[in-house]
Amino acid sequence: MNENAATANTATTTFEPVLTRHAEAETCADPSSVMTLLGEAGGAAGFTSYRSTFATGAVGAPAHFHTKATELFFVISGSLQVLLGEEIKVLNAGDFLAVPPHTPHAFAAAPGHEADVLFVFTPGMGRFDYLRLLGRVLRGEADFKEIAESSERFDNHYVDSPVWRAALEAAKTEAAR
């Protein structure tokens, strides 16, 4: 990188470097996964990053979209089934996916597989609070209406997807065999 590029990059950075040591990372667990909260910084150049491990058959997020954030997925190991618009894709270890704003998507461990996935949102919008809320709701410690009421704050808007419902039902049927 040349000196001018380094100066330009420094000028647009709106947060201090973020370092999270593995031993110090907060974890959130819900019935479907364990999330390790890695780093978060606000502002237009901000981000949220966390790692989720999904057990075999675990459902991740229902169909939703973001109006501001791009969501990035990197599969560390295993396989992740993803709704992308109206299509179902399977991401395997080493695969990367970037989902732009306004694109309906959902995800779960692919049928018969576990998944270990790194997620990054940009901008981040304080999503750690959303993940904590989601965990409380799934454990029965908070009411689901709190999630619906937080959709604008966390840029997380749920939608109905017959394609995703059918994929989840097919996965249940396959697991029952």
Rank of each mutant, 00 (worst) to 15 (best):
A98R: 14
P101Q: 10
L97S: 10
S77A: 13
I76V: 15
L72M: 03
G94S: 12
L91P: 03
E86P: 04
A108W: 05
G85L: 03
L80P: 01
N92K: 14
H102T: 15
L72E: 06
A106R: 03
V99K: 00
V82I: 10
F74L: 12
V90W: 00
V99G: 06
V99R: 09
A106D: 07
T103A: 05
G94V: 07
I76S: 06
L97H: 03
L83A: 01
F107H: 07
G78Y: 08
N92Q: 15
F96P: 04
A98I: 11
A93D: 05
G85M: 08
I88P: 00
S79G: 11
P101T: 06
F74E: 11
P100D: 07
G94L: 05
I88W: 04
V90Q: 01
A98G: 15
L91Q: 04
P101E: 12
L91A: 13
K89S: 13
F107C: 06
L83R: 01
P101R: 13
A98W: 12
V75N: 00
L80I: 05
E86T: 13
V90R: 04
Q81K: 03
F74K: 00
F96W: 06
F107E: 04
A109L: 08
P104L: 13
E87F: 00
P100N: 11
E86D: 15
V75L: 08
S77D: 14
L84D: 15
T103K: 01
H105Y: 03
A106H: 09
D95P: 13
E87A: 14
P100A: 11
D95T: 11
V90L: 01
F74H: 11
V75K: 00
A109Q: 06
F96Y: 13
P100M: 05
V75Q: 04
A98L: 14
Q81R: 13
D95V: 03
G78T: 03
S77P: 08
A93R: 02
F107V: 06
E87N: 15
A93N: 02
P101V: 07
V90E: 04
A98K: 13
L83W: 02
A106Y: 07
L97A: 12
L91H: 10
F74W: 08
H102M: 15
F107A: 04
A106N: 09
H105C: 05
L91R: 05
L84Y: 14
P100K: 08
F107D: 07
